[in-house]
């Protein structure tokens, strides 16, 4: 999407327009700092999504008031707390200190392989949500929950590999790419106008490259009365129709 935004900006007369060609996946891979907006954390709390929230302030400060679901690991103890972290490296680990958690603490956790680690924008000082008093403890418990409308990677692979009579795979990437055998390809931008091509009596399993277009397509289908789920993962299809699905 960014190349098209860039093109629009050039049309508007901007003279110095650049595109990060590796995109966000490349940024995360290069271990660049990732920032969680306060509203993003609030949304996770509200939707009861699974997350790992680390309060890096002193134990005393965390006990006086911490953000919901936080675990207290003072910054000085972080380096030796590695074993407390979940085995699932795709867990969203969010760090906060008084101010925004330092690049050093981020690099430490990111270096352990937590690819979805982030620092809370502005830290505790900037947090305009609730603080809860009491000892937050220091034991991390993380059980991944699916988002509404999400299908697990394992279930997606099963549906895509075998011809299921009650399911159909919908590929919402641009046309012209190799597709999973049996999948229907309708680019996300064209989906609303081409709904008639989809069966109403089957569950529609949506995928794209990264799960983003698929989640948009999910909404379109649900709004139009289709039964659908999407896979929120990286899907790559080879020219022979074989495919790889990996967590983000």
């Amino acid at each position: 999407m960014s190349p098209f935004s860039a093109r629009e900006a050039v049309k508007l007369g901007y003279t110095n327009v650049k595109v990060l060609s590796s995109g966000l996946p490349g940024w995360k891979k290069s271990k660049g700092v990732f920032e969680m907006p306060a509203n993003g954390l609030k949304k996770m709390i509200h939707e009861d999504t699974s997350y790992v929230l680390i309060d890096l302030r002193s134990k005393k400060a965390a006990t006086a008031g911490h953000i919901k679901g936080a675990v207290s690991i003072p910054e000085a103890d972080l380096a030796v707390a590695k074993d407390k972290f979940p085995t699932d490296k795709s867990a969203p680990v969010i760090l906060y200190n008084d101010d925004q958690a330092s690049a050093k603490t981020f690099a430490l956790v990111r270096g352990w392989g937590y690819k979805n680690a982030s620092v809370l924008n502005g830290g505790a000082k900037a947090w305009d949500g609730m603080f809860f008093p009491g000892d937050p403890g220091s034991k991390i418990v993380y059980v991944k929950k699916l988002k509404p409308g999400e299908i697990t990677i394992a279930e997606f692979k099963k549906a895509a590999a075998s011809k299921m009579t009650d399911k159909v795979i919908l590929d919402v990437r641009d046309s012209g790419m190799s597709t999973i055998p049996g999948a229907i390809n309708i680019p996300q931008a064209e989906l609303a106008g081409r709904l008639a091509e989809l069966p109403k009596d089957k569950e529609i399993i949506i995928h794209c490259n990264t799960g983003i277009l698929a989640s948009m397509a999910l909404k379109t289908l649900q709004d139009n009365g289709y039964k659908a789920r999407y896979v929120d993962a990286v899907v790559q299809v080879s020219s022979d129709g074989s495919f790889e699905v990996s967590s983000k």
């Binding site: 999407m1 960014s2 190349p3 935004s5 860039a6 900006a9 508007l12 007369g13 901007y14 003279t15 110095n16 327009v17 650049k18 595109v19 990060l20 060609s21 590796s22 995109g23 966000l24 996946p25 490349g26 940024w27 490259n209 990264t210 983003i212």
Partner: peptide, 14 residues
């Protein structure tokens, strides 16, 4: 300022 540096990114490599 139309001459300011704008950097765009999205969820996929381009």
């Amino acid at each position: 300022d139309k001459d300011r540096l704008l950097v765009f990114y999205c969820g996929g490599p381009t």
